[in-house]
């Protein structure tokens, strides 16, 4: 597959443009369909790069499939050495690459920045007997099979979180009765309809249902409490699990150190611009900006943790 492009957007190019050392055309690969999480990041970053006057035009290329692995493979092949291209990837991609025996991996791209993160929340139906993480974990310990826990697709960040919790409870993650739901809607319906015991998803996805009292939030997966959110952390309730669903950007392989530094500077400027900030606030993204070496370290740890969990869950083949 040598061809380029499924270049979307340009319609966003209404932003004002400043002259100076502008990059003429910049490319951002979103390894997902238009409208999804990766796509939103790609388009928002594109807008922010333009609005901050660093780039003249941005093309967002959508290439969905296999949790981002297909887009990444194309990015590695086609953009080698191109200092004006970025790939969006995140925690979801880490899980997908581990489970799918993918021919590409994060070692083949150049990490630039982690842009944002979302923490997860674990909720139960209002009719549920569980009032806290402690209740839930006690019931889980007593009979793991009877506590069905829903979340996103198998091997994804929600699944990883559930198995980390299981480990903390001293139960082999293999015993977890995890029910994967693709694409949020069905999962929310299942917890609202009291079909499953508990459900894990990004906080933003469930915030409205929690505020309306349609589901009961037991805990968030953040390290510390968030002043705006009246939900305790899972960690403070005795189960030490901290999970963030992060997304970041990566440059193609084969760029030099100066180009890498330049890209980091551009991305950081864009993320600090009002265009990005406004979107981040709307979508309740956490500011988790981290670049270069520290991002690389974080990434390596995340990959290691995911690989161990995926192995324990006997996912993939």
């Amino acid at each position: 597959m040598k061809l380029k492009t499924l270049l979307v957007s340009c319609l966003v190019a209404l932003a004002p443009m400043a002259a100076q050392a502008q990059v003429e055309q910049f490319k951002i690969m979103a390894p997902a369909n238009p409208g999804g999480g990766f796509d939103t990041i790609a388009r928002t970053l594109g807008e922010a790069l333009q609005a901050s006057g660093q780039v003249k035009s941005v093309v967002v290329e959508n290439k969905a499939g296999a949790g981002g692995a297909i887009g990444m493979a194309q990015f590695v092949n086609n953009e080698k050495g191109n200092p004006n291209a970025l790939l969006v990837a995140g925690a979801v991609t880490v899980g997908a690459l581990e489970t799918n025996k993918s021919p590409v991996n994060f070692g083949m791209v150049t990490p630039i920045s982690r842009l944002m993160g979302e923490f997860n929340v674990i909720v139960v139906p209002t009719a549920s007997p569980y009032k806290s993480i402690k209740d839930l974990m006690a019931a889980y310990k007593a009979n793991p099979g009877a506590v069905s826990i829903g979340g996103g697709s198998a091997g994804g960040i929600d699944h990883i979180m559930a198995s980390l919790m299981s480990e903390k409870a001293g139960v082999d993650p293999d015993k977890l009765n995890y029910i994967p739901f693709a694409g949020g809607g069905e999962g929310k319906a299942a917890v609202l309809g009291n079909q499953i015991a508990a459900y894990i998803s990004g906080y933003g996805e469930l915030a409205d249902l929690i505020k309306a009292g349609k589901v009961r939030a037991l805990g968030i997966s953040a390290a510390t409490r968030n002043p705006d959110i009246p939900v305790p952390t899972i960690r403070e309730q005795g189960t030490d699990v901290v999970v963030y669903n992060w997304r970041g950007v990566f440059a193609p392989p084969g760029i030099n150190a100066a180009q890498k530094t330049q890209l980091i500077k551009m991305v950081e400027t864009a993320v600090k611009s009002p265009a990005w900030k406004a979107k981040a606030e709307k979508f309740e993204w956490l500011d988790m900006l981290q670049s270069g070496d520290s991002f690389q370290t974080f990434l390596n740890e995340d990959i290691k943790r995911t690989a161990v969990t995926v192995k324990k869950l006997k996912l993939g083949n």
Partner: peptide
């Protein structure tokens, strides 16, 4: 905004 492959980019 959906670019199909061209002869010359």
């Amino acid at each position: 905004g959906l670019n199909l492959p061209a002869l010359i980019p």
